[in-house]
Each structure stands twice: as C-alpha cells, then as structure tokens.
Amino acid sequence: MSTYVVTGCAGFIGSNLVDRLLAVGHNVIGIDDFSTGQRRFLESSLKSERFRLVELDLLDIDALQRAIKGGEFVLHLAANADVRFGTLHPRRDLEQNTIATYNVLEAMRANGINQIGFSSTGSVYGEAKVIPTPEDAPFPIQTSLYGASKCAGEGLISAYCEGFGFRACVFRFVSILGERYTHGHVFDFYRSLRANPNELPVLGNGKQRKSYLYVQDCIDAILLAMEKAPEKFNVYNLGVDSYCEVNDSIGWICEALKVSPRLAYSGGDRGWIGDNPFIFLDTARIRALGWTPKLTIKEGVLKTVEFLQANEWVFGARD
C-alpha cells in the first residue's frame, strides 16, 4: 500500500478522505494547523497506527519538508475557503492558497515526491459564458480573490509538471455537502434557524442557481482520478449533472427541520461580491473514467442536515 500526505486533514473533505484511505489500507501523513479543522473529525483516524498527524502551518516550508518525508502522493486540500469575505482580508487567500501551494510543491520536490491531487474550485471560471461549463472553457475575468488564488495554484502546479516531471490531478469542485460539513449555505441557514425559526435572512433573491456534490462521491472521484488519469497534468470538474435554486435548498432544509420561516431576502441576483449566480459544471471528463455520483443534490442537503442535527457542537467550534 502507498503513503499519502493529506494537507487540511482535519477539515471537512480532508478528514473524510483520511478515513477512506486508512480503510483501504494506505498509510497517511496528515497535516493541519487547526485554524478551521476539527480534532474531533480525526478521532477514528488517530486510533490507527497507519496515521501520523503533524500540526504545522504550511507557510513554514522547512517544517513542511520534514513532515512529508516518506510520502508518495500528496493530496493538497488545505486552503482558506472563505469566498464570501475574501475582500476583507485579501492577503489571506494569497498566503493560504497560493503561497502555501508553492511551499507544498517545493517540499515535494525536496523529498522526491512527484504526484499531487489539488482541490481547486469551479470559481476559477468566474461568470462562465458556457453552461454547463467544461474544463477547457475560456477563463473570464476572475470575480473572487479565492478563485484567483486557486487559479494561481493551478498555474504553479502545471508549471511543476512541465519543469520537474510532476503528475497532477486538479479538481474543480462545486460546493461539497455531507458529514463534517462546517462551512457554507446549509450550515449558515441551519445556524440561523436554530437562533430564530420564524425568520430566515437570505442573501440575494434566492434564485441563484448552484450545483452541489456529496462528499463521499467527491472522494470516489478524487481516488479514481489519481489512479487512472492519463496525462501529466489533468483537470477534472467534480459535480452532479443538475443544479438547484437556493430557494429549493431552503425548502428542503426547512422541511427537514419542520419549520416555516418568513424569508427575508437582501435582494439582487447574487449574495456577495464575487458570488456567481449560476454554477453548473460539465463533468463528462471524470465520468469517462467510470465515475458516477450516487447521491442527488437534495439527498446531499438532507445528509448534511442530519449531520448538523447530530453534531450541533460544530456551531460552537466555528464561532
């Protein structure tokens, strides 16, 4: 079996990925600075002798080089994912997304590791003119600092593939849902309804159209691509073949919680600066490898609500 390095190992996707890798017999070196990751998500993994946790900041390149020694594959998920508030702290995206990715690549090079999977985002397409959006769609003007920082990370990775013989899979996600979810619209709506079940503030007009993907389907795609991707530099959109309005998701959440709040819209066709009112990705390329998502968007939303109902401690952990 192989040894994987997972950055952001205590996060939502990262901790689920660590569990999956251990379950199939791999060794895992997990790296997290716990700025947003949760130690409780690693409770099961920490019981395995095949898991080693290293707490460090990816900006500490010397410590990072030491930490990943012995790894064979790097799955780089650590990032600042706070798209909505990017304009309030622009340097955070630069440091945690772009510079941290450079440090990961240099630490890999120092250790003779040449295979990487990278969590990018569908936000790199900005407000795409082609819907559903394929991987080779023309890149428009970047509309968020998060998307711009991820685009820069992709550029660095492709250059390392060309210059140093790396092999990479870049994953452009839609929003991910499911167990251990602690960031995004379902989290925000659930928290708001806990505080006041009679009224729900909604950014924009609720008609924003978005696609979502269940976390275990996401992990299936990542591991399949790392095994079967044919090129030196590979880019895959990850999502389902449908989308929903924010209003649809609100309806499913409220039905699950048995509440009927008054919806208080802020107005406009988007929620914040850089919010794309329509995200729908073409996933033919990853499907060609044999991947098919198992859950619909609605099922993913309901799985997320179930997790939050059973783990309300996460709201205090993220306050």
Rank of each mutant, 00 (worst) to 15 (best):
L53A: 00
T98F: 13
Y4F: 15
D217Q: 09
Y181K: 11
R91I: 12
E95Y: 13
F73I: 15
A23W: 02
K228V: 08
A107N: 00
V28N: 08
G274F: 11
R92C: 02
P277M: 04
R50V: 01
G251H: 12
S175G: 08
A128N: 04
I253R: 01
V202H: 06
G178L: 04
N247L: 14
N205D: 15
R191L: 13
N276F: 02
K303E: 14
E312R: 13
L177M: 14
G300D: 01
P138K: 03
V18M: 00
N111D: 03
V240T: 15
T296V: 06
K228N: 10
D248L: 06
Y4S: 07
L58E: 09
D82G: 07
N311I: 02
A256V: 01
L88Q: 13
V305I: 13
T296D: 00
I68V: 13
N237F: 02
L289N: 08
S242I: 03
R194W: 03
I68S: 00
A256I: 05
E43W: 05
N80D: 15
M108Q: 06
E162I: 10
L59G: 12
N27K: 12
I157S: 04
E43T: 06
C218R: 02
S119L: 12
L46H: 01
G126W: 09
A137S: 13
L302Q: 03
G316Y: 03
R262W: 01
Q309V: 10
E227L: 06
N97V: 01
G267M: 12
I286M: 04
G30L: 07
C151Y: 13
L94V: 14
R39L: 10
E179D: 09
P197W: 12
H183Y: 14
F166D: 00
Y102I: 08
P261R: 00
L203V: 09
R167P: 04
L295N: 14
M226I: 04
T3I: 05
P277E: 02
F315W: 05
C151V: 03
A10C: 01
S211T: 10
R191M: 05
G155T: 15
G204I: 04
T133H: 10
E55H: 06
K258N: 11
F280C: 05
V18H: 02
R50D: 14
G274A: 10
